[in-house]
């Protein structure tokens, strides 16, 4: 199934990628070429086959609910593009405008 330019733009929004018109066009071509190959799995008769999410039979693991040290705040903030000594700084999410 061919993927349209409109679908490329929709997926880019879901993926949080601001693409240029040029990128939308070339990604459309690339995705159609790749999906053209991948589409063979849609023709497989997989009725009754269980999906594999994980190659080994593993069970969920929990640890004791005990407080233990995490990454110190200073280190957690070390690579932040913008931070105060105790928080990440991000653009305003709510409100805005004068006096907000």
């Amino acid at each position: 199934m061919a993927i349209s330019e409109e679908q490329v733009r929709h997926v880019a929004l879901l993926a949080r990628l601001k693409l240029t018109d040029e990128q939308v066009a070339s990604l459309g071509e690339d995705l159609n070429s790749i999906l053209g190959h991948i589409d063979t799995i849609q023709q497989l008769d997989l009725e009754g086959v269980e999906p594999t999410a994980h190659a080994l039979d593993v069970v969920n693991e929990t640890r004791a609910d005990e407080v233990r040290p995490g990454l110190p705040r200073e280190l957690a903030l070390r690579n932040a593009p913008e931070a105060t000594p105790d928080a990440f700084v991000i653009p305003r999410i709510v409100g805005g405008g004068d006096g907000a």
Partner: peptide, 9 residues
């Protein structure tokens, strides 16, 4: 979904 089933095979 199909890919995960193909993985089983």
């Amino acid at each position: 979904g199909q890919a995960q089933k193909a993985r089983t095979l």
